[in-house]
Amino acid sequence: MPSVEISVSQLKSLFENSETVSIPTRLGNTLLEIQGELEYPLVPPANDVGKKFGVHNNENIVQFGLLQLEEGSTQATMLVGEKQRLLGSVVKLETPLGLLKFEHSTGLVKLQDVIRYKITFKDRPLPIM
């Protein structure tokens, strides 16, 4: 029977006081957008000399960069890997985005968050100086 209710229970508190909004949502989500593809090995390499790979909650993770935001400004800088520096900005989304989680095990859909800002990098990466 193809229909499913979208559960919004987690979000009720969000709408009760949605005056203050910040880049990370109050539930802690941040949306990062890069024009192009962010590439990194999909299995931890043997020669991880830069100690970029690790494990978190039994999942492999990689440290791909550093993000710097200046308080009171919309400018953002991101270092990716060893060589790239990207200049970007924080923008308010024209249409907020709902973050939906599709739980395959239970068949439930949850609206987990409402995202109103994103950090976006549209320009060609620059060398790190």
Partner: peptide
């Protein structure tokens, strides 16, 4: 000038359980 620096990580195997839905004003309402 206060700078906030954050270290960025990503899961090697990212989750496919999530989707983003545009919340138009009538839907948001």
């Amino acid at each position: 000038m206060v700078l906030n620096t954050s270290a960025l990580f990503a899961k090697l195997e990212t989750s496919t359980d999530y989707k983003l839905l545009s919340l138009t004003p009538d839907l948001l309402a």
